[in-house]
């Protein structure tokens, strides 16, 4: 599943982004290999979503060189868009279409061939088969989120970007997502997800890297540096506390 010709799933050097005079990210370096998962911790408003939006071509960086799935998101956004799957805070699904219709619509936007089979695959991957022909409006939050994940994996992108995917997911779906991510990494893909949940983050991070976004940059944590798991958890928890900024 990895993309030939690109050594790194994500490579970011010297990324900077500010909103007006409000600096969000600066001197940010980040490297992610294929087959790796990166779990990103960080307090609210620290720039996790902004980072994912930049990687997913939705926001423009002020400075820095970027390579996402082998392509520059600023110069060749469409090449990047074809190779990433994004799950954000919003489902990006239309309430008055059924789950299947939504997926067919996205399949056509991505110019996929063999859309019905792919849609079936994605739906069964997130175990929504029994509700696929109901309007999204009638689904529970957890099911909508699963449908949103199905949308993100529909075009089989090698790189997944998930912004707090645990929000609104029930226990069963969380397990499903964990299995999916593991499968993604094993088949040579990569994923970055942000989270607020230390337990889930540690579980996801077992097979990959754990990073903390603070002071405008990503610091990759090495669990070995800490005396025990409890201390590591302490560090991660404290990174989630919103600092007073003035």
């Amino acid at each position: 599943m990895s993309v030939a010709g690109s050594d790194f799933a994500v490579r970011v050097e010297g990324l900077e982004k500010s909103f007006g005079h409000w600096p969000v990210l600066w001197d940010l370096d980040l490297t992610l290999d294929w087959g790796q998962l990166l779990v990103l911790f960080g307090a609210n408003a620290v720039g996790k979503t902004t980072l994912l939006r930049i990687l997913s071509t939705q926001a423009r960086p002020d400075a820095g060189t970027l390579s996402v799935a082998g392509y520059d998101p600023v110069r060749t956004p469409n090449a990047v868009r074809r190779r990433i799957g994004v799950v954000g805070h919003q489902t990006c699904l239309y309430d008055d279409l059924t789950c299947r219709e939504n997926l067919v619509y996205y399949g056509r936007l991505f110019g996929l061939t063999d859309i019905p089979r792919r849609v079936d695959e994605a739906i069964s991957r997130v175990s929504l088969g029994h509700r696929a022909d109901q309007r999204v409006r009638t689904l529970s939050n957890g099911m909508q989120k699963r449908a949103s994940i199905a949308r993100a994996i529909l075009h089989r992108p090698p790189l997944l970007l998930l912004d707090e995917p645990e929000a609104g997911l029930d226990q069963e779906s969380t397990v499903m997502l964990q299995g999916l991510l593991k499968e993604w990494a094993e088949s040579g893909g990569a994923a970055i997800m942000t989270t607020h949940n230390v337990d889930l983050g540690l579980a996801w991070g077992e097979t990959g890297k754990i990073g903390v976004l603070a002071d405008g940059k990503v610091q990759v944590q090495e669990p070995g540096r800490y005396a025990n798991v409890a201390e590591f958890r302490q560090v991660l928890s404290s990174s989630l506390v919103t600092r007073q900024r003035n």
Partner: peptide
């Protein structure tokens, strides 16, 4: 914009 439909649209490789 309600459920992020525009966002999904912008994430697709359509000019």
């Amino acid at each position: 914009r309600e459920q992020g439909g525009l966002e999904g649209l912008l994430l697709s490789p359509v000019s």
